[in-house]
Structures are given as structure tokens and as C-alpha cells.
Amino acid sequence: MKQIISLSINGKQFEDAVSDNMLLIDYLRNTRGLTGTKTGCDGGECGACTVIIDGQARPSCITLASTCHGASIETIEGQARNGILTPLQQAFHENLGTQCGFCTPGMILTAEALLRHNPDPSEDEIKQALGGNLCRCTGYVKIIKSVRTAAEANP
């Protein structure tokens, strides 16, 4: 079975036929070519596939595409505009928060959703928010510092 879904991705409207069993991550990567969203653990445990759905950072590997009809989705491709990094991306760049880069899209989108909701999070609140995102390089110190730096840069 297929359904037609209409949704916004990074501010642009799309209408696509998706099969009932298609996951959001497969739709974003394979149908829309947005391969910045990463498949990590394949089981909702690592957060590499995190995208922002209607303002909430959620794992796209355990979300069915057809349940996103009418939703507004943001991926890593929609963050920088005209080559200008967002304050959060800039902070990850300057603080070496990116490391190998594989978990970074998920980290950035989770942190972006956090900062919109809570522009001045404590270190504990950052850790809580990023609790569902694993970094295989295990360098969480620089990631947390990057999020704090972005918060401080945006008073």
C-alpha cells in the first residue's frame, strides 16, 4: 500500500507517494536525496538519524514516513543558509565538536531543538538533551562545549 504525503522539508513543500512500511530516514535519504541524515545503529539507540519534526528532535529510523503527512521536517541540509553556518554549526566548527562527523548531524539537530526551547541551557540540561545521541569518538566534552558556546554567542 502507498499513501501520498505532503510535508515541508527545510521550508520547501513536497508531495510524494510513500509505501506504508517506508521509514522516514529511508524517505529522506533515498527519495529526497538528503543523505546528511545518518543511519547509525538502525534501532533507535544512537541518535545519528535525528531530525527535527514539528520542533521536536526525534529519531527518523523508528518513524514511519507516512505518519509525517502535514509535518514540518528539518534536516542538517536546511541549517546553513547561503553558505553561512548557524551559530551552533559555527560553534561545533570552532570547538572541534565535530570530530569524525558521523554523529554530528544528529547532535546538531538535537542541540538546535534544545536551544530554541531553552536558549541558555546548563551543562546538565545539555547532557540530558543529548542523552539519546551517541558519539563513537566518545569526545562528548567538546560537543557539550560547542553547545554552550553557541548558547553564549546568542544572548
Partner: peptide
């Protein structure tokens, strides 16, 4: 689970 799961 994690914060992202708890939204759903």
C-alpha cells in the same frame, strides 16, 4: 529511552 523517543 531518550528525549527523542519520549516525544513519540
Amino acid at each position: 529511552a531518550g528525549p527523542g523517543h519520549r516525544f513519540a
